[in-house]
Nucleic acid binder design. Structure first.
Lengths: 243, 243
DNA sequence: TTCTACTTACGAACAGCGTTCGTGTCAATG
DNA sequence: CATTGACACGAACGCTGTTCGTAAGTAGAA
């Protein structure tokens, strides 16, 4: 009995990642035999070049020079493929050894790595929302964040919920940036001028928005990202960070 | 020349919301003539009962006892419909008169209203991500939030970016809760027990996660929501709130 | 009244999506 | 050689958003 894709998934979710299930002889029947690995990597290629919205089963199959049905022997679902992508993405994250002296900086670094990965594959954070948090790779990241927070002297309950808040925000921010970038490929300043004009033309029922239009449109997306992370971490009652 | 849906949309985006453009005689040709209003309200019905994923043009058309093409005379797009829904949703938000003594509480109230609306129509926050921020109704909400923050003594730049962070988080939180609820309709405790078991069975490479499994799975979604809002607002260098 | 102009409604169709089914094809085994 | 089992894949189903051509009915003009 050959493993059904469901069994493959179950194996992936297995909590003890031992027994790599030695791949059968590389039956070189096909020049490039379809493997989960091949599917994942071509999927990443597509998302990187054309965005997450372009990631369809048919598109992946076409890139692999086959029909869509061929994928379902290796992957349960599109949803499953999404989860694999997110897992792979999280696996790339480098987790530092927790250092009580610089825990805030460390946490920000991890979040920034995540954001960069999400933005490298625009729109993929959409998949991160749906991905089950039981995935081993995502769990590895949150384990790392938890370790950093605990090393920083944050109490466990606060740390746990802070991780939730952080990952949720990173996801959302990345998604928004991706969507906004897709909406207008032009430089951002152009969009900012447009925004300023709109705000200036607003009726008087929007006094504050008109008055502080400059502040509302100020800063790059990176600035806003750093600001929000600071907002969440600075209020944290932990050991004061040196950096 | 009758207004094309594009023109209708432009009119909606118009910055001065005057001249209600007196509706033409209610040519009662149809028992229930299709109007933008009718489309919006049936769309809300569908989302409320079956979730955002069930909101399709055909589904709306069927509920209106017509074909899908009939909708495109009143609505540009599905995307346009989404924006209308988000706009309507934001219009329901009650904005308090800013009170410097209770500004944090007021802000939390507004965010909670938003969350409750999003959760009432599960999954609709997905549309909120894509919605252009130039929409008048969403702008009204952020104007209200800005006023509250300024009244609280928060400096304008910080206030502007805080609004961004807050709305983004509220959206993301609502979306996650909606998705999680759809995944398993069963009571949450069941899912929590499952989570605890999984964590307990984790290999030793996840020491913190195993150790603090209780904290990681503690609290309702409401608890986490309140926690994160507090995280963002308590660190804010503004006038200390009485409440 | 009759004719025209115009708005609104809608059936049919197109291209694309995720997914399933039945069948074909090859390698290794009995 | 024959059989088995894993893998690949063409074709199809039901769904999606959207467009097009056309019909129906009202409003105004001649």
């Amino acid at each position: 009995m050959s493993p059904t894709p469901q069994q493959r998934r179950a194996a992936r979710h297995q909590l003890d990642p031992s027994a790599p299930a030695a791949r059968r002889g590389p039956s070189g029947r096909r020049k490039k035999p379809i493997t989960v690995e091949a599917i994942i990597s071509t999927a990443f290629d597509i998302v990187e070049k054309e965005g997450y919205e372009a990631l369809t089963m048919r598109r992946v199959a076409a890139a692999l020079e086959t029909g869509p049905s061929s994928l379902y022997a290796h992957v349960v679902n599109k949803e499953d493929l999404d989860e694999l992508l997110i897992g792979r993405l999280c696996a790339e994250i480098e987790l530092p050894a927790p250092d009580p002296a610089t825990w805030r900086r460390q946490l920000i670094d991890v979040c920034t790595q995540l954001r960069d990965q999400y933005l490298r594959y625009p729109g993929i954070s959409q998949a991160a929302f749906a991905a089950a948090p039981s995935n081993l790779d995502t769990l590895r990241v949150s384990e790392g964040m938890l370790a950093i927070l605990l090393a920083g002297g944050v109490d466990p309950q606060t740390a746990a919920w802070t991780i939730d808040a952080l990952t949720l925000y990173v996801n959302a921010h990345s998604l928004e940036v991706s969507l906004a970038a897709r909406r207008s490929d032009e430089a951002w300043v152009r969009s900012r001028d447009e925004m300023l004009n709109r705000f200036a033309a607003l009726p008087d029922t929007f006094p504050q928005t008109k008055r502080y239009a400059a502040e509302l449109t100020a800063g790059t997306t990176h600035d806003r990202f750093a600001f929000t992370l600071g907002l969440m971490l600075d209020g944290l009652p932990g050991q004061p960070s040196l950096a």
